[in-house]
């Protein structure tokens, strides 16, 4: 009658392919390690000095890779909360509607704020925000809505102010949100990509990745999320979104940097499999290895 298949998996913990291991070339530290005893170096993120010490030792405070830019020494942790910078693209969830502003959860240390004065109101008109606008804030964005935005300002306690004053940003409609570590997102000039497979991805700097179908009329400029399309999405398009989501999760699981090229290569190498097969340990590793070799080939081709 119904045939059930038994899947026998390899051990979940596997050694990485040694061809790609470059760990010996980088300088790894763990908390409390002395990075340098040289007094000329400047203290960056992830390091500290003891005020009372006369020998000016520089210690690491997190586990990770030492990065040296001239005289500045930083330790980059592998996994942290998102540290915002001005101009970053973020995807966040509305947590609270307050007077004149929204509180947005952005995987950051503190909740970010979105002022009512830094959004484009429906209709795109530029005018002073009136009391009536404040009363209708919830009609535009309510608790639980997902938005894409840009970091406008970083306050000195680390809180972020966001703005959506461009039609590229705004409320997000139908799609899929994948959460990865913010350190996996490669900083690029552009974080919103219309991929040739018919989907748009927002690889936001805070590690929240939004995947949706590219809408026909608004190919380059979005509409600011005012008219959310609530039509049912056909199966083929949903499959594209799911495939992308699975690919991104595979790459994230193996800590491969995420940017348009790596996502696209992973998508291409996954095409020979069914969408659900991508999640299996074996296929996932296959796709990751293929992506890595494609990226390596491109790198050597450039140089």
């Amino acid at each position: 009658m119904s045939s059930s298949t038994i899947v026998i998996k390899a051990p979940s913990k596997r050694r990485n392919n040694p061809i790609y291991a470059h760990a010996s070339e980088v300088f790894l530290v763990t908390p409390g390690d002395v990075i340098t005893e040289d007094a000329d170096y400047m203290r960056g993120h992830g390091t500290y000095t003891n005020a009372g010490d006369e020998d000016n030792k520089l210690y690491a405070s997190v586990a990770g890779v030492v990065e040296r830019i001239n005289k500045l020494v930083c330790v980059k942790a592998l996994k942290t909360r998102y540290n915002g910078e001005v101009g970053d693209v973020v995807v966040g969830r509305i947590k609270e509607v307050q007077q004149k502003r929204w509180k947005v959860e952005t995987n950051s240390r503190l909740d970010s704020t979105l002022q009512i004065s830094s959004v484009n109101l429906p209709g795109g008109e530029l005018r002073r925000r009136s009391a009536a606008d404040e009363l209708t804030m919830r009609e535009y964005l309510k608790e639980g809505d997902l938005i894409s935005a840009e970091v406008q300002q970083v306050h000195n306690d680390g809180m972020l102010s966001l703005h959506t004053r461009s039609l590229r940003y705004g409320k997000l409609g139908q799609g899929c949100c994948v959460v990865v570590s913010p350190s996996l997102i490669k900083r690029r000039k552009n974080h919103i990509h219309n991929l040739p497979c018919g989907a748009t991805t927002i690889l936001a700097n805070n590690g929240y990745i939004w995947i949706s179908i590219t809408s026909g009329d608004a190919c380059n400029e979005g509409d600011g999320g005012f008219n959310v399309n609530k039509e049912p999405v056909p199966l083929e398009e949903r499959e594209v979104v799911c495939r992308l989501k699975n690919c991104i999760q595979c790459l994230a699981k193996s800590s491969v940097m995420l940017y348009d090229t790596s996502v696209l290569y992973a998508y291409e190498s996954s095409l020979q499999y069914q969408v659900k097969e991508i999640m299996s340990e074996k296929v996932s590793l296959e796709i990751v290895n293929q992506t890595i070799s494609l990226l390596e080939r491109e790198k050597t081709g450039d140089g």
Binding site: H22, A23, V26
Partner: peptide, 19 residues
């Protein structure tokens, strides 16, 4: 503990670096 952390960091970093 130190050995465990180092192994964990090394394993994660090995993929980070080449892309």
């Amino acid at each position: 503990m130190e050995r465990t952390v180092r192994e964990h960091v090394e394993e994660t970093v090995s993929n980070f670096t080449h892309s």
